Simulated scan of single mutants.
Amino acid sequence: MAKNQSEKKNGKPWWLLGIVIIVISMASSAGVYYLLDLNTPANADDHQPEEEAKAVVAPTPIFVTVSPFTVNVQSDNYEQRLLYIGLSFKVGNEETAGLIEQNMPQLRSRLLLLLSDQNAEELTRPAGKKAVASEILALFDEPFSDPQPDLAIDDVLYTDFIVQ
Rank of each mutant, 00 (worst) to 15 (best):
L113K: 10
I85G: 00
I21G: 05
D155T: 06
L123G: 01
D37C: 07
Q106T: 10
S145E: 13
Q74N: 13
A97Y: 00
T65M: 03
Y158L: 12
L111C: 03
K8P: 03
P59N: 06
A127C: 01
Y84I: 13
D160K: 09
Y158A: 09
Q106N: 10
T96H: 02
I100V: 11
E122M: 10
V156C: 03
Q148P: 00
N39W: 11
Q118S: 12
L139M: 07
P13K: 04
V163S: 02
S67P: 05
I21Q: 07
Q74E: 13
V66M: 07
G86N: 04
P49F: 13
A138E: 11
L16V: 07
I153W: 03
L151Q: 02
E101H: 10
T70E: 03
N77E: 15
D141Q: 15
N77L: 12
S28F: 12
Y78P: 03
Q102D: 14
A120G: 02
A44D: 09
A58S: 09
K3I: 10
G18L: 12
D45Q: 12
V56H: 08
Y34M: 09
L17V: 05
I100M: 11
D160F: 06
K8D: 11
V73Q: 00
W15M: 13
D76Q: 14
G11T: 15
K130N: 09
I19P: 01
I21H: 05
L17H: 01
P68G: 11
V20D: 03
H47P: 01
A120D: 01
